[in-house]
Design a protein around this nucleic acid. Structure first.
Lengths: 230, 230
DNA sequence: CGTCTGTTTGAGGCTTTTCAACTCATGTGG
DNA sequence: CCACATGAGTTGAAAAGCCTCAAACAGACG
């Protein structure tokens, strides 16, 4: 069992809708689990037996074709919800991009619990609606944007989502550290690793950004970046 | 007010979770509205004051860039739900692709009603989760599939979704009529109208399909089509 | 110091887009 | 009834953009 009252994402995750008693009940169902970077929590097509909350780290949702092409269809951060409630096989794999920690629930137990806790279900609905908006926004990027627009859009979104992480939520840092490498950026944007790399180099040459190290990005000219994002 | 008990989508839409009394209450809030093909119900970025159920016809959800490129991020059929509950501006435009009829609710009233009807909310949650899965599946298509794979995938999906429409749900018709033209297919697949047209012509030349008229498609060799879909 | 992994860079080729012309079905007015 | 305009779809040629393959490079680590 898990002690929810001291949970790091207690107030941001869907659990935030629950009172002390309910939290205790949910806590009995959940258990914390560490996932090492690169390890896969859920496999695409499997009858996924669990749902989970992310406590720490970053995970990716991946869809693959038979011949091995991969597309990242979602990136989840702490307090985000993972999995497919209500009895469906997982339509994507969930893999840790960094060392991560999640709070896992048996799906059937969770479904039952959710059904009798409308507030929790509403929180889940809101979250799912937001995810859907984000996914549809991303569809525009994948279908209609050029490589440079894709990279610019990606950096701006990451800058926003990663800034929300720390204590000083709200302020946009100029610099931030990406939790993933070039290949994964490419898999998010529907590009190859080479094209991604070239676009970044071009932007650095233009002075719009700096790349102090492999995973660090500093946005020098956010306005220009917004224009490039299309 | 609307008479829900005789509604054509009564048993398929989210309303299916409601009993007679609740239905009457919801019916007082709703009103039927016709939308002519080409007319837009909701504009991207607008503070959308309504949500709706589709009664008849087909509508598209569109995201556009500043310079006019369009990506269709969703297609909704009868019994599907439209709109963004819980107080957000609409992240996309909703436009009728055929003459359509919808059952409209004031969003605030609907939100309130939903909050006090967990069954309705759960139906909405399930629907949203399904939409999210569909959207993510589509992201793979947009990001990683070739033009011919895109067209083949599209035709297969449309064949399935349009077959579900009639009385004989479940059986896959070889032939069906698309509710949209070439440009709109292109906007769904993230291609140009020319590329779309060329792929269709190529498939016809290969004998995989027939194109009896502009909007009709007959799939001759479904197995081959599945292979082509990647 | 050498190896390993991840990234950058280069050259060439292929797919898709772009631009333009043409076809075909439909509808309108003379 | 026919000439003509109209809009959607098809086809062709050329160009652009992105991908593929290959090689060089950089940082981390034993």
């Amino acid at each position: 069992m898990t002690d929810c009252s001291s949970c790091v994402v207690r107030n941001r995750a869907i659990c935030a809708s629950l009172d002390a008693d309910e939290l205790l009940l949910l806590g009995k169902m959940g258990r914390r689990q560490r996932v090492k970077a690169g390890h896969t929590l859920l496999w695409e097509g499997d009858d996924a037996p669990v749902v989970a909350n992310v406590l720490d780290g970053v995970l990716k949702l991946v869809v693959a074709t038979a011949d091995g092409r991969e597309q990242i269809v979602g990136v989840v951060f702490p307090s985000d919800f993972i999995g497919r409630p209500f009895g469906k096989t997982s339509p994507y794999s969930v893999t840790a991009m960094t060392d991560a920690e999640v709070c896992i629930f048996n799906r059937n137990s969770f479904d039952t619990f959710a059904s009798s806790h409308p507030d929790l279900q509403q929180k889940l609905l809101r979250r799912t609606l937001d995810e859907l908006d984000r996914a549809r926004h991303w569809m525009m990027l994948l279908g209609r944007k050029s490589a440079s627009e894709k990279v610019a859009s990606f950096l701006l979104e990451m800058s926003e989502r990663l800034s929300g992480q720390g204590c000083d939520a709200g302020t946009l840092d100029k610099g931030f550290e990406l939790p993933f490498g070039r290949q994964q950026i490419a898999d998010i944007l529907g590009l190859t690793i080479e094209t991604t790399s070239r676009q970044l180099t071009k932007m650095r040459a233009q002075g719009v950004l700096d790349l102090p190290s492999r995973r660090e990005v500093v946005i020098n000219d956010r306005a220009a970046m917004v224009v490039m994002a299309g």
